[in-house]
């Protein structure tokens, strides 16, 4: 079972990250993929601050865990989780995000931003790249894991299932997929047109170890991470995290219009108040 003190620490970080994401979205003139950013906030905090072996001071350490954000449009949430971990400077992120010549683009670019493992943004491509990185680690007898975070929507892409098939066939136990199962794509809900259920069974059918969890309950996330088998496991593992797009902001949750957007001063204030209230319910806050 997850250590309650650790859960509290991670909840406080996720709370801070949500507020900072909303502040940035309010500050930035362009649109931010705020819906998906908020659905992966708790997961990214748990990964960068608990689950993954990473060192912001040594970003090339050979034994570091690798992380690929296949859903590249959630880049700012990855930048923010990494910033809170000590990779980047918060003010620079705030002031330059999305602007000309910034390293912090709308989709992550590894050439522009060292610390990012892989440039992503075209959906469905991350897992195959992670599979390649996993093969390399196995051949070199390295002990780290490769984590790849996907949106559930992008798992409509065929390439994802090609990679799922390869990883299952080659028994890549050092590979961990994380699916942000928010059941919402850009313009539709799961079931409106495309039906992804039975979702876990799809992965199981390809010989993956499936762990389902509540992607907004920090104890559930920590428990899931703790359940990831050792890298010698004959199956890759996928964490299917049940989430809500726009989580934590009442007017965004279950609303199709918040895949991406910008916030007025009023929107920002209301969102921050919601985040404050939610954190208070967890026993946190001032």
């Amino acid at each position: 079972m997850a250590d309650p003190k650790e859960v509290k620490r991670l909840q406080a970080l996720a709370y801070d990250m949500r507020k900072k994401l909303i502040t940035l979205t309010g500050y930035y003139e362009g649109i931010v993929h705020i819906g998906g950013d908020l659905s992966v906030t708790d997961l990214l905090i748990a990964l960068y601050h608990y689950g993954m072996k990473v060192d912001p001071k040594n970003i090339k350490a050979p034994d570091r865990d690798r992380f690929l954000l296949s859903k590249g449009h959630a880049a700012v949430s990855m930048y923010m989780a990494m910033t809170l971990r000590g990779y980047f400077d918060y003010d620079t992120l705030m002031k330059t995000y999305g602007r000309l010549d910034s390293a912090f683009g709308e989709h992550p670019c590894k050439i522009q931003l060292p610390g990012v493992e892989c440039s992503t943004g075209s959906l469905g491509q991350g897992l195959a790249i992670a599979v390649g990185m996993t093969f390399s680690a196995r051949m070199k007898k390295e002990k780290h894991r490769v984590f790849c975070m996907m949106g559930d929507g992008e798992t409509c892409e065929g390439e994802v299932w090609e990679a799922v098939n390869t990883a299952g066939s080659y028994k890549l136990g050092n590979l961990v997929g994380i699916v942000d199962r928010n059941k919402q794509m850009m313009t539709s809900f799961d079931g409106d047109y495309m039906n992804l259920e039975p979702y876990g069974d799809r992965w199981r059918a390809f010989n993956w170890n499936v762990i389902e969890l509540d992607g907004h309950d920090m104890a559930s996330i920590v428990d899931a991470i703790d359940q990831i088998p050792p890298i010698t496991n004959p199956k890759p593992t996928v964490l299917i995290a049940h989430t809500t797009k726009g989580k934590g902001v009442s007017y965004m949750e279950h609303e199709i219009n918040w895949h991406a957007g910008s916030l007025s001063k009023e929107d920002t204030e209301k969102a921050l108040a919601d985040i404050e209230a939610n954190y208070a319910k967890l026993g946190g806050g001032k």
Partner: peptide, 14 residues
């Protein structure tokens, strides 16, 4: 498609 992705992953690791 998968193969080209895997190639990228291999190359990212040197």
């Amino acid at each position: 498609q998968n193969l080209s992705g895997i190639a990228a992953g291999l190359a990212l690791e040197g």
